Amino acid sequence: MDLNLHNKVVLVTGGTKGIGRAIAEAFVNEGARVFVCARGEETLAEMDRKQGITTVQADLTSEDERNKVIDEVLKQAGKIDILVNNVGGSNGSTVSETELSLFREAFELNYFSAVHFSKLALREMKQQQSGSIINISSIFGRESGGKPTYNSAKAAMISFTKALADEAIKEGVRVNGVAPGSILHPTGNWQKRLDENPEKIQAFIEHEIPAGRFGTVEEVANAVLFLASEKASWVVGATLNVDGGQSNANF
């Protein structure tokens, strides 16, 4: 299926490993011009050697650095067609044992970065009267599981996705989200847990994931490509579970 993404200018935050990297590479395979931003110099340098990908180093918890990223994309490409807010991470433990500062850090990385990048991209997309913003959240933004700092930020992201979508569609810009379940990749927590205790993780899969396996980063990337394309022209404000049936939510 031709998704008509050739020559689209795409920005993927946190795009050097895991889900973000798969998303960036999937867009390149569709002929898009892709920018990725992240903090780590080594992974950025390795990505920068890939044809079709331009890297921008930035601390995405910093408002000034986020401005710098958008300015660099516009300087080099002159526009932005697709924004994928992928950067994220978890910290802390239980609510009672987690310092308030860690909640703030989690929101700055997972939530406020997406809000800020969306506002910056929307400003440009409004002028074009077209564009797509896709927020990578989590099934645990809808239900309990995992660390409270992360889950709270992802819940806020899902709510933000719908609020911005209803506003932006009037300007020809579609906003949607993808909520992955448990995804296995070499740099992720599930791979570490699998290496440490294969029997425990296999039991988790059998009990928690109806499809009977972990998801792949490519499967998440495929959902993002669809939502970014005009094939999803009537999908507005949705956050799509990509989880092999793992989520317990019925909405």
Rank of each mutant, 00 (worst) to 15 (best):
Glu65Cys: 03
Thr43His: 10
Ala114Ser: 13
Asn110Glu: 00
Leu44Cys: 03
Leu60Asn: 01
Thr55Pro: 07
Val95Glu: 02
Thr94Tyr: 03
Asn110Gln: 01
Arg104His: 13
Leu100Thr: 13
Ser62Arg: 09
Gly92Trp: 09
Leu83Val: 05
Thr61Val: 07
Leu102Glu: 15
Thr43Phe: 01
Arg39Lys: 14
Ser96Met: 10
Asn85Ala: 11
Ala77Leu: 09
Ser90Ile: 01
Gly52Ile: 12
Phe103Asp: 08
Asp48Tyr: 00
Gly78Tyr: 02
Val69His: 08
Leu44Phe: 07
Leu102His: 07
Val95Phe: 12
Lys79Gly: 03
Lys50Met: 10
Glu108Gln: 15
Asp59Gln: 10
Val87Cys: 02
Glu72Tyr: 09
Glu41Arg: 13
Ile53Trp: 08
Thr54Asp: 09
Asn91His: 06
Glu41Phe: 05
Met47Tyr: 04
Thr98Cys: 07
Lys50Thr: 13
Glu46Gly: 05
Ile80Met: 11
Val87His: 08
Thr98Glu: 03
Glu41Met: 06
Glu65Pro: 00
Thr43Lys: 05
Ala114Thr: 03
Ile82Asn: 06
Gly40Trp: 01
Glu108His: 10
Arg39Asp: 03
Asn67His: 15
Asn110Val: 01
Lys75Tyr: 10
Thr55Asn: 06
Val84Pro: 09
Thr98Leu: 04
Thr43Tyr: 05
Leu100Glu: 11
Arg104Cys: 02
Lys68Asn: 14
Asn110Cys: 02
Glu97Asn: 14
Asn86Leu: 09
Met47Asp: 12
Asp71Ser: 10
Leu109Cys: 02
Asp81Gln: 07
Ala77Thr: 07
Val73His: 05
Ser90Phe: 08
Thr61Met: 07
Ala38Ser: 15
Asp71Ala: 15
Phe112Lys: 04
Ser113Asn: 08
Gly78Trp: 03
Leu100Trp: 15
Val95Gly: 04
Phe107Asp: 11
Ser113Glu: 01
Tyr111Asn: 04
Ser96Ile: 13
Lys68Phe: 10
Glu108Asp: 15
Ile53Asp: 08
Asp71Glu: 15
Asp59Tyr: 07
Gly40Cys: 04
Leu60Glu: 00
Ser101Arg: 12
Thr61Asn: 09
Ile80Pro: 09
Val73Gly: 10
Asp71Asn: 13
Gly40Glu: 12
Glu65Trp: 00
Gln51Leu: 11
Arg104Leu: 03
Ile53Val: 14
Gly92Cys: 07
Thr98Gly: 00
Gly78Leu: 00
Lys75Ser: 14
Lys68Tyr: 09
Val87Leu: 09
Gly40Ile: 00
Gly40Val: 00
Ala38Met: 06
Glu63Thr: 13
Tyr111Val: 00
Gln76Phe: 01
Ser113Phe: 01
Ser93Tyr: 05
Thr61Cys: 07
Asn86Tyr: 04
Thr43Pro: 05
Asn85Arg: 09
Lys75Gln: 14
Leu83Gln: 11
Asn67Arg: 13
Val84Gln: 07
Glu46Tyr: 02
Glu63Cys: 03
Cys37Lys: 02
Ala106Met: 03
Gly88Asp: 10
Asn86Met: 02
Ile53Ala: 08
